[in-house]
Nucleic acid binder design. Structure first.
Length: 283
DNA sequence: AATCCGTCCAACCGCCTCGGC
DNA sequence: GGCCGAGGCGGTTGGACGGAT
């Protein structure tokens, strides 16, 4: 009975919802040191959680640049179209929706879009039955094909060429700063950035830090004049081709560099670490 | 006012892949 | 080549919440 001598003592991890204190600890730790090895994060941050839990919490909730709140019509259509192409590859779909997490998209699909698609399919089926009853034609496509075609048509209306550019963009390098600074955080003095927080009565520290970050003149100038100042506000991933967005991101990086913004923290790895202090975000 | 029920979403779980040893 | 740990992903669960009865 009891523990075998060689048996590893499994640490008792806390489960369930995260408290604001835990969020703060995790946030502070990652902001200061980056996440590095996730399994060591809870130890260093003084949390009773496992690394996976920390990672998930960061990715799905604490990470800067997350766009919260309702999905736009365009985002919805993007998900529908990509789901037709990729299936339940939520992480890949999420790559095409800046500021959205795979978990969020998955939840949205299961709670709303799936039903919508099924309803559409049923409607198609009933139409089809009527069609069969009134026509002897055997050229009617099956309902699922019809649904696919419908969605494809919707996709075309979005001027989004999924068959080429979306696929190509899946091989794009990971989003850099743009991944953090999605339109909500880029908008200058816009109300949408805080609408979610306000509507939910939330105002977590990080977002307020981000808000302060937005208010930084240098950044504001950079962002409002940069490639994200215009179309990106309206989800340029949909309006523009993926390659354009990719170029925008590169241009954005250049602009940031030109403005001296990046030079705030020379030598810091742009892809992984960042630091925030005194209401200013350094990369 | 109470409780029932459906929905939403944060978080967990298990599996897979990859890299280091 | 096998083992192990870490990271990533998709499926699922459970609790909070709001509307209906």
């Amino acid at each position: 009975m009891g523990l075998q001598p060689l048996e590893k003592a499994k640490p008792k991890y806390k489960k369930g919802l995260w408290s604001p204190e835990e969020d703060n600890k995790l946030k502070t730790h990652i902001v200061k040191h980056g996440h590095g090895c996730w399994s060591s994060v809870p130890i260093k941050a003084g949390l009773q959680r496992n690394g996976k839990s920390c990672r998930l919490r960061w990715i799905n909730y604490l990470r800067p640049g997350l766009k919260r709140g309702l999905f736009s019509k365009q985002e919805e259509e993007t998900i529908l179209s990509l789901h037709q192409m990729l299936g339940n590859k939520w992480s890949q779909i999420a790559q095409h929706l800046p500021g959205r997490t795979d978990n969020e998209i998955k939840n949205y699909w299961h709670s709303y879009l799936k039903k919508k698609v099924m309803a559409n399919t049923k409607e198609m089926e009933s139409h089809e039955q009527v069609h069969y009853a009134t026509s002897s034609s055997s050229e009617t496509m099956d309902s699922s094909s019809q649904a696919v075609q419908n969605l494809a048509t919707q996709g075309t209306h979005n001027n989004y060429n999924f068959t080429n550019e979306a696929c190509q963009s899946s091989s794009l390098p990971k989003l850099l700063f743009a991944e953090w600074l999605t339109l909500d955080h880029v908008q200058c003095g816009g109300s949408s950035a805080n609408s979610y927080d306000e509507s939910l009565g939330l105002k977590n520290g990080f977002d307020s830090q981000i808000s302060s970050f937005q208010e930084s003149a240098t950044v504001n100038d950079t962002l409002s004049q940069g490639p994200f100042g215009g179309d990106y506000h309206n989800n340029s991933l949909i309006h523009n081709s993926a390659s354009e967005v990719y170029n925008s991101q590169l241009k954005f990086g250049t602009t940031m560099e030109e403005s001296g913004f990046i030079h705030c923290m020379p030598g810091v790895d742009f892809s992984g670490n960042f630091n925030m202090s005194n209401d200013t975000m350094y990369i």
